[in-house]
């Protein structure tokens, strides 16, 4: 994270952002991975992941955030997330039915339980996270003419 005083907000905001942005991202990933155990899941976690990047953009300016995820990468990742979700659904055909949960269910309340639910949550998390970030990018495309 470059500390360019020309762009973004004040030093206070930048310092706090630098401290918290990683935690926000981590919390988003936590929510995604525990979707089958606790409230939240792919969508809620994806929104938090997207917020961490939006946070970065607000504090440091557009360029810093775009350097991490570009618009092309966001749109490709979004399609990949959707394809992954469809693939998880199609996996069910191996067991005979669309969306059938074919993986071993494991012990309840373990992180690795509930079969394909966790895979679905991860793909939804990717899709929603980069999707929301791409929407935010599209909204900040307009800027003051120099």
């Amino acid at each position: 994270m470059r500390n360019n005083p020309e762009t973004g907000m004040t030093l206070i905001v930048k310092t706090i952002t630098r401290l918290t942005v990683g935690l926000i991202l981590l919390f988003g990933i936590y929510i995604i991975l525990h979707g089958h155990l606790s409230p939240g899941g792919g969508f809620a976690g994806g929104v938090i992941v997207a917020l961490s990047f939006v946070h970065l953009m607000l504090a440091f300016g557009k360029d810093v955030a775009v350097a991490r995820i570009s618009k092309n990468m966001a749109s490709n990742l979004e399609s990949i997330g959707a394809m992954m979700f469809l693939l998880v659904a199609l996996l069910g055909f191996l067991g005979g039915s669309f969306f059938l949960n074919i993986l071993a269910k494991g012990n309840p309340f373990n992180l690795f339980s509930a079969g394909t639910i966790i895979l679905s949550n991860i793909s939804i998390g990717i899709k929603v996270g980069v999707g929301l970030f791409a929407i935010f990018l599209a909204l900040v495309v307009l800027e003051k003419s120099k």
Partner: peptide, 19 residues
């Protein structure tokens, strides 16, 4: 099995196209 194909085919086509 033909029934879910009406959702699967266009959905796969949509994201494959964008990819």
């Amino acid at each position: 099995t033909i029934i879910p194909l009406f959702v699967i085919i266009p959905l796969a086509a949509a994201f494959l196209t964008s990819l």
